[in-house]
Design a protein around this nucleic acid. Sequence first.
DNA 1: TTGTACGCGTTATCAA
DNA 2: TTGATAACGCGTACAA
Lengths: 347, 347
Amino acid sequence: MTEGPTITTIAQRAGVSIASVSRVLNGLPTREDTVRRVMRAADELGYVPNSVARSLRNRRTDQIAFAMADIGNPVYVAMVREIQPLLKAAGYRLLIHSTDGETDDELDVLRGLRERYVDGLIISPLRGVTQEHVEAIVAARAPVVVIGALPDDMPEGALVDNVRTDSRTGVRLALDHLHTIGRRRIGFLNGPLDTVPGAARAAAYREALEALGLPYDEDLVEVGDFYRDSGARAARALLSRVPGVDALMCANDLIALGALDVLREQGRDVPGDVAVVGMDDTDLASVTWPTLTSVSLGSAERGRAAAGLLLDRLQNGPRGPRVAVVRPSLTIRGSTTVSQASPGGAR
Amino acid sequence: MTEGPTITTIAQRAGVSIASVSRVLNGLPTREDTVRRVMRAADELGYVPNSVARSLRNRRTDQIAFAMADIGNPVYVAMVREIQPLLKAAGYRLLIHSTDGETDDELDVLRGLRERYVDGLIISPLRGVTQEHVEAIVAARAPVVVIGALPDDMPEGALVDNVRTDSRTGVRLALDHLHTIGRRRIGFLNGPLDTVPGAARAAAYREALEALGLPYDEDLVEVGDFYRDSGARAARALLSRVPGVDALMCANDLIALGALDVLREQGRDVPGDVAVVGMDDTDLASVTWPTLTSVSLGSAERGRAAAGLLLDRLQNGPRGPRVAVVRPSLTIRGSTTVSQASPGGAR
DNA sequence: TTGTACGCGTTATCAA
DNA sequence: TTGATAACGCGTACAA
């Protein structure tokens, strides 16, 4: 009772061999009488197959892992939310790894693949895919989907698919919008430059300015972390350095929250005095006041695409590396449009 | 190369038996020369132990599952965020199950424990622990921690610990606060009554009113779902039925968001005309405008406590069922205090 | 149609 | 100190 029935227990009880039990349990053709006796015994014993033993034999765990920097970040929550039901529907369990964005932790996860405790992995490396990442992926012998940028020179043998977004275009959409509503002194609050998003968005900001014929002024740029308080610090610094700023482009929504805090604290009207745009279009964007215009990088779509690619590879066997690109879009809300900014009317 | 080295491969290469390989790998006393040869062979082959085989042999998976209604809910995110690092530090991997609050899915998870794919489970049943839950827990033979209420009559043999909060006291804190700031017509926006939190909070609301000597008026109560749009609907209904309401107690923060939406839309000042209190004290509460006073039910603490209880049981063997109670507290913000409500001054 | 026997990769016991 | 060997629970050739 305390140890749980196995097919051997059933075999004894039903008076047949373990092979017959296994056959019945797996629905292979068996004499009807045998089927009945086995099923009966299994029922009475409350038999449940041991998934570990099955995994050892079948060389598959029916588990998939998702590794990202921080499960507290709404972007990753959105991804998990899409990934989970897809995996579940396909019969896989989901493991979660939070890496804190530490490259070492990411490498541990990738190397851990060799222990074969999962059939595949979705990973979103925060600071980019290093040579060591690549080596670990090649050595993994389990399919990996990378959400984010991948080096151009991936080795042939790597079982890897790639889901990426185009934050360049994303930033461009935002700056175009700000330009359209008449803003010309557009500040930029970025995250760390040694992260993939940070670096990409920095470059994109310059490019977008150029395309708009606006000068690049490094006084308008502030670098911090991807958090709210850091965003507030950065905003404060930028506003005191360049009081005439009429728009703030923020590298993510949390930074934008911090910026909104400071603007409110200083009594500056949003978007009247300063328009604000966030990035990632998280749930937070519709909660702030004014609501936050934000560049959507399609977190949900990226999650879905990643799960889709992985499942396809798992179910339909080997295929060449693939890339899925999710197009960014701009969700315009109150922080850049007066109409929505004060629905209550005069107040 | 494609199949991965095992201890047998190593044994051949090192010219020793698999037993010796195993000993060396597990750090058991071995002749130094043997150690060197084995380690060398293992290194050269890039050996990594197969976790599934090890699990089969050791009867432990080093995995723990957390099952909750919806990973998109900030309450559960807060829990996961605490649970994950604790498990990781103790050498366990984390599996996530989203049950959508469906009792059937919860039962599937509980029954799935018999497949032995995890060493333990933390579960937060949305609609309460039914007789079927209890049976599954007893049959599980793996330790379970339930976050939420547990029936009084749990059978002896159940390996179950319990983490609960006291939402009665939580609601009481909120209503006391509202009463203190002079509110007397306190509406209540609740979630479904067939959920554990919904039922508990409904009762708590009545009790708290009574304690304050305020009459219970069913016109002041609206029942919907635990979501923002539902909260908005409920608020609209309540406000049109009883325009003179001077406070809204909301059964969670999402409902409160919806209420804030409606109040703003109707041009009612918060907290001047109507004070609002949420519940759960999620990250959202500090993002809204005005910021949201909210009853903290200690999601993070509950997560931590649950992980602690489970790990303790796993590491230190059997012990009687335990209960950890997390005390609620009230985080006062702008939606109930004028001072914080308009920091920008006259505007 | 059924049963025997082996292998999946480890760990642990028991002789030698 | 070491090697042969037996589990762990399941699936499946192969032979009967």
